[in-house]
Amino acid sequence: MLAEKYADRIQKIFAKYPDRRSGIMDLLYLAQEEYGWLTEQALEEVAALCDVDPTQAHSIAGFYTMYSEKPKGKYWLQVCTDLPCALRGADDFYAALCEFLGVEDGGTTEDGLFTVEQVMCLAACDKAPMLQCNFHYHENLDMEKMKAQIEQWRAEAAQPEQPEDERP
């Protein structure tokens, strides 16, 4: 349960806003961080915390593309393949990435670690190919760099869970 596990963080979130329902977006991010994606239970928990109907939480999660209501890997790799990035080879990079991980476009690896996805502009065209992993940017990529990074993530995931720190 979010309410028990993250009591302090939730307190800080609510302190930022005049009323509880305004904290809903921050809490949805928190829930997504905790559960990997927004399960119906997560939506219900967040709605209860914000004192709104679960349908309203569902609606907000559905509107914004940075929330996911579908199962996602621990590392959610969003590669920009819009035109300027494609001109710098982003689409080839994306195809190579999919092949390396052995997944289809939009798929999740069998070990549940990685989900790949093409997205629209992330406002880093000059540093393409680039991707966003759990909302952190990785820029000027090629497959060499990427393979090293993926190894690092795999190693990280094998470690026992670290204590939570603030989401930047």
Binding site: E40, T55, Q56
Partner: peptide, 21 residues
């Protein structure tokens, strides 16, 4: 005062939903 209906997604896929119980 019972907001059990809401929109989901956006653009042309915008649709009315409820997950209330």
């Amino acid at each position: 005062g019972d907001d059990v209906l809401a929109f989901h997604e956006r653009g042309r896929r915008l649709q009315i939903v409820t997950i209330s119980d």
